[in-house]
């Protein structure tokens, strides 16, 4: 793994929330690196700071201090609009509650980010088809989210996250709302994409089934990295 490219570099990141009466220190000097092709789970109890870390890595939140480099770009140097554009092209997101756009079909949801990137229609169609087939939903392209099960929606969300060929995919508790079969199915898909295509996945999770499949487990507690175990 040592010769692989560093996708995410977190250096001495602190995050303190000051909106509350008493300032809350969510992260207290986190330093870590994630390399291309890793299948990493960030775990920890509620309030440990794992979601904050994930948000900061994903450019959804800014650290109070410290440095975040994603694919070599220092996120703290980007304006809000540049950060939105950076997320669009470099980071894929899978959220806990699927979060598909309800008025678009599965196909349209997957190609949505590519449309924002002005990708040509032929390329969009081809990529969407590939991804929908990769997540086993080639026959559900024209269904709206409300016509899909939770597991199917989350698979569409994975396909959407992969559409712009991001540097890595961030998944925040992706299996929290899924039954066992759907969880296993989703993990199989992500694992296959990781092994066959080298896609980097970073999860925050409580789910033991996800932790068992991860090849690296970073444990966060009280805003610090408690352990970092590679299997």
């Amino acid at each position: 793994m040592t010769d692989k490219k560093v996708v995410v570099s977190v250096k001495d990141v602190h995050k303190t929330y000051t909106e509350t009466k008493v300032p809350v220190k969510a992260l207290r000097g986190v330093t870590l690196e994630i390399k291309q092709g890793e299948f990493t789970a960030i775990v920890g109890p509620s309030g440990s700071g794992k979601t904050t870390l994930l948000n900061i890595i994903g450019g959804l939140d800014r650290p109070t201090s410290g440095e975040i480099l994603v694919d070599g770009t220092d996120l703290s140097q980007l304006s809000d609009n540049k950060l939105i554009d950076f997320r669009k092209t470099h980071i894929g997101f899978v959220f806990q509650s699927y979060n598909l756009i309800p008025v678009l079909t599965a196909k349209e949801n997957v190609e949505f980010v590519m449309l924002l990137q002005n990708v040509a229609q032929q390329k969009r169609d081809q990529r969407t088809k590939e991804l929908m087939e990769a997540v086993g939903l080639g026959d559900r392209m024209h269904n709206r989210p409300s016509e899909l099960s939770g597991g199917q929606q989350q698979r569409v969300a994975v396909a959407r996250a992969l559409a712009p060929k991001p540097a890595f995919v961030l998944a925040d508790e992706p299996t929290a709302n899924l039954d066992s079969a759907s969880t296993a199915n989703l993990l199989d898909i992500m694992s296959r994409l990781n092994q066959q295509e080298g896609m980097t996945f970073v999860f925050s999770t409580h789910d033991q089934r996800v932790i068992d499949r991860a090849r690296r487990v970073i444990t966060i507690e009280d805003g610090k990295v408690l352990s970092d175990i590679r299997k």
């Binding site: 994903g58 959804l60 809000d80 609009n81 939105i84 554009d85 997320r87 669009k88 092209t89 997101f93 959220f95 979060n99 756009i101 309800p102 949505f112 980010v113 924002l116 990137q117 959407r160 712009p164």
Partner: peptide, 16 residues
């Protein structure tokens, strides 16, 4: 609000 948050997260600019 939640949906708008998602759209911004995945790369939709505020102007759009």
């Amino acid at each position: 609000e939640y949906e708008f948050g998602i759209l911004k997260a995945i790369g939709m600019r505020t102007s759009k």
